[in-house]
Nucleic acid binder design. Sequence first.
DNA 1: TTACATGCAAATACTTTGCATATAA
DNA 2: TTATATGCAAAGTATTTGCATGTAA
Lengths: 140, 140
Amino acid sequence: MEQNILKNAALKSTKKRQVLLLLLQKQARPMTAEELHALAEPILPMNVSTVYRTLNTLTEKKILIRSVRQDGKAYYSLAKKDHSHRLVCDLCGKVIPVDTCPLSELEETLQQKTGFRITGHSLEFTGLCPECSKKDTDEK
Amino acid sequence: MEQNILKNAALKSTKKRQVLLLLLQKQARPMTAEELHALAEPILPMNVSTVYRTLNTLTEKKILIRSVRQDGKAYYSLAKKDHSHRLVCDLCGKVIPVDTCPLSELEETLQQKTGFRITGHSLEFTGLCPECSKKDTDEK
DNA sequence: TTACATGCAAATACTTTGCATATAA
DNA sequence: TTATATGCAAAGTATTTGCATGTAA
């Protein structure tokens, strides 16, 4: 699996890259370099710069998607064929993917109105997931 | 004008805060701390940490809105009553405000489907503005 | 007068880079 | 063998903080 992903991108298939890819698959949520390093360490010790370099390389090869959030950190996730948006809980950080994307139509309209050649967009909702929402209410 | 904004927020009305607020009004586009410092310097020299502290204070007081972009930098703009989104040109950085926001309806739907209590969202389109789009085409 | 604002330098957080060594192909 | 990957330490960039001094109210 991971070997193929790497080979297809003309990258050497190293154990460290495989571990990082595996972690991103298993966790199935966007993670920071720091988180990935912490998770990888017990499995296979590696330097932080290796993590950063790997994430950059994989992002350039379009294997990963990098998204910088309001906390100023870069979050990485496997690039899936279908692009999607997500709900991020302010309290527990839980992420719920949103399947609908109502923006294609809007993009069309905007291109025509503004002459802007739109190549992409980022959209993220914030709020409280059901559990945290409950907790929040209980505390009051 | 600026004095009132500051007084209303129970903040001391200093010349430096006024200059920063004025710059944000005049430029009418989101700016980084670095940009603001460079613009303020010739008018009224001030330390970078003053700029950062001022921006943080004004953001806490809801006078400014902070938005961290994909470049990892925080952009500040005056908080207007109406929330809006924008088009950002990848080449020249030009910003075009988008008046429509099609997300309220979607938020409703999502709240019901997921149980998430949505409190906000961030949306930004990227692409090329008409001028840069032309330049880009010409070069090919 | 006094609480808050500012300058300055040092510290922090996240990320990148140069160079020597190690390893997949 | 050879181009690429990695470790390590140092550097870079955006931002914050502690402390002494300055100033609006």
